[in-house]
């Protein structure tokens, strides 16, 4: 039976469904306010939130908060990648290096990065570098372990194939091991990226270092609840953009992996 929904072309239908989902979320929020699950005294309405978003964008607070957060996040990820990926590849390639460092990694990895906020303040003060330090510490582990796992999972037959063409160690690493590891690294990067946002906002909240987290706190202290909610809206939107970018990068770069394993079944 042809229904109203199936007659609409797929992309349009998808968009409509997504909008309907988001609208339901807004309705749910307003409903909870109306019923009293969320106190109307401290929780502003959707209209008020959007209004606050507009004014805080216009007066520049929001823009600079986003700017600082994105800057710290980017630099932190960059540092974590620069350290984590090469070390991960090294311990993936060398059993010896792996054995030597494994215990240290096992001990350091579970340390929650925000526990180091006081240390970071002592070392770096409360500006952006301190956030970069904490984000890098949190994100280095998934990247290191992702690269290590990727290198470990390289098919030995592919290495043999390269050897059969007379390639030496370095050429094999460059032309076979690295490309084969790219999907694992991109996945690790996606994981680190959302972890990085969590750590950035957490560190800003605790230390007052500039960014969305501290804007949130200062607005709350000033009694501007609508700005607080606008901050939440913006962090959510920021997260969505980051996730979408990285997910499409993952599909683009690593598309062959998903498809080739599917093809092998």
């Amino acid at each position: 039976m042809p229904s109203l929904l199936t007659d609409i072309p797929r992309p349009v239908r998808r968009t409509l469904q997504a909008c309907a989902g988001l609208a339901t979320l807004v309705l749910l929020f307003e409903g909870m306010r109306a019923v009293g699950l969320l106190p109307t005294t401290s929780v502003p309405s959707t209209g008020e939130i959007l209004g606050a978003l507009r004014t805080s964008v216009v007066d520049g607070d929001m823009v600079s908060a986003i700017g600082y957060t994105v800057l710290a996040w980017l630099l932190g990820l960059l540092v974590a990648t620069a350290i984590g990926i090469p070390s991960g590849i090294a311990v993936g390639l060398s059993r010896w290096a792996d054995r030597a460092t494994r215990s240290a990694v096992e001990i350091l990895r579970p340390v929650p990065a925000v526990a180091l906020v006081p240390v970071a303040i002592v070392l770096f003060g409360i500006e952006v570098p301190m956030q970069v330090f904490l984000i890098a510490i949190a994100c280095v582990w998934p990247l290191l372990l992702g690269a290590r796992g990727g290198v470990r999972a390289v098919d030995p037959l592919q290495v043999d194939t390269a050897r059969s063409f007379g390639l030496g160690q370095l050429a094999i690493i460059r032309r076979v091991v690295l490309p084969a590891t790219v999907p694992a690294m991109v996945t690790a990067l996606r994981l680190s990226a959302s972890l990085g946002v969590v750590v950035a906002v957490g560190a800003q909240l605790i230390s007052g270092s500039p960014g969305l987290g501290s804007l949130l706190v200062s607005s709350q202290n000033a009694g501007k609840n609508d700005v607080v909610w606008a901050c939440l809206l913006v962090t959510g939107a920021l997260g969505v953009v980051i996730n979408l970018l990285l997910a499409s990068a993952e599909r683009g770069i690593a598309g062959w992996q998903a498809l080739s394993t599917e093809g092998r079944r």
Partner: peptide
């Protein structure tokens, strides 16, 4: 001692020996 020049090898599991990213 190592794969000599002038050898071409076709492996049993050819689907694993082709590089999927190329």
């Amino acid at each position: 001692r190592r794969v000599p020049d002038g050898f071409g090898i076709v492996f049993q599991e050819y689907n694993r020996s082709l590089f999927p990213w190329l």
